[in-house]
């Protein structure tokens, strides 16, 4: 018995990597097929980078959402928060007497404070009164969107400084990648990678992350084990709000303006889709950041592939819906299979 304990600690981890490896194999096969259909345009490095750039925003939103969903919560306000933080940051940036990197940093901090505060307010009724987060974050969705329109007067707030251009559409290590005849990595993609790495470490390696899982699995057991469940639950909404602020910042930098309409489209639903397709359970207690990245990547590749092989844009929506359903159904069947054997 004790020999087993020693020999098997990696089994779940192996299982985890097996799943990811399996998903990658499937994706590669599909990509190869699409590549043939698109006469080789799909697997061009430039195209892949393009996909990464496109998924950046929903992926970062999904990363924040992953924390919330693992606690068995949901944050519906993220799209509106992208809008509000973008508008607030653009307004503040125009009023600030700084320039250059100082301006960037201060503006981002303002956005993080606004997003974090919104997350804190989201969590307040959830932890104090045990209200369902669906309701409180839905109310926040409306409130923040309204505020965003009020502050901006309904029009995009154009940035006066051009210090943000590098963040929005600049590239990383451009001279080196150019010399190697590779496409340069857009700065937003670097932001996404940094967010993913920090969030993964936070979720998988810290006490906070462990408590997030424990609360999603059995909140009362976690509380009786001394976990400050109110604080941890508040933190996940704050993190989600901050991720929305980062996306608001990147969009603002990309468009050189903070528009109240940014983030109010499919962002919320596609971020949740990325989380769910990435294997995080809406019931709480399980999930991963890397899964959310792959979920976002799968959705992004799908859109891109359909565009390249000229699938009708209305039909694209149908296909996306079917793929999301399929991903969740397959995951459920796999779990049942594992439970039986």
């Amino acid at each position: 018995m004790n020999g087993l304990v020693k020999n098997q600690p990696a089994s779940l981890l192996q299982n985890y990597w097996l799943r990811i490896a399996g998903a990658i194999v499937v994706v590669i096969l599909l990509m190869a097929a699409v590549n043939v259909a698109a006469h080789g345009a799909f697997l061009q490095p430039g195209n892949i980078v393009q996909v990464l750039r496109q998924i950046t925003y929903n992926c970062i939103l999904g990363v924040g959402q992953t924390f919330v969903i693992i606690t068995a919560g949901i944050d519906l306000s993220i799209g509106s928060l992208v809008s509000l933080t973008g508008v607030v940051m653009a307004t503040i940036a125009n009023a600030l007497p700084f320039s250059g990197v100082g301006l960037l940093i201060v503006t981002l901090l303002v956005g993080l404070v606004v997003g974090g505060a919104a997350g804190w307010i989201n969590a307040l009724p959830v932890v104090k009164l045990n209200l369902p987060p669906f309701i409180t974050t839905f109310a926040m969705l409306e409130v923040t969107l309204g505020l965003s329109y009020i502050i901006s007067g309904g029009r995009p707030v154009a940035l006066r400084s051009d210090a943000f251009g590098g963040v929005g559409y600049g590239s990383f290590l451009g001279p080196i990648t150019n010399a190697l005849h590779l496409p340069s990595l857009p700065i937003p993609v670097i932001w996404m990678i940094v967010v993913i790495v920090i969030a993964s470490v936070l979720l998988m390696r810290t006490r906070f992350g462990r408590y997030v899982f424990a609360i999603g699995g059995n909140e009362e057991a976690a509380r009786l084990a001394g976990v400050n469940t109110s604080r941890v639950k508040t933190m996940v909404y704050v993190i989600s709000g901050m991720c929305a602020a980062i996306v608001g910042f990147l969009y603002m930098a990309l468009f050189s303006s903070g528009s109240p309409q940014t983030g109010t489209g499919d962002e919320l639903l596609e971020a949740i889709a990325a989380v769910v397709v990435g294997g995080t359970s809406l019931m709480g207690g399980q999930g991963s950041i890397i899964g959310t990245f792959f979920g976002a990547l799968l959705i992004g590749l799908l859109y891109n592939a359909m565009n390249l092989i000229h699938v009708d844009s209305y039909l694209q929506k149908v296909v996306l819906g079917v793929v999301i359903l399929l991903a969740v159904v397959l995951d459920e069947l796999r779990k049942r299979y594992l439970a039986r054997t």
Partner: peptide
Amino acid sequence: KGQGLVLGMSVAENITLAHLS
């Protein structure tokens, strides 16, 4: 099941939950 354990977590994670620090 309702108050003592997080059933979906591992044996090790449950054992250390109250004293993770």
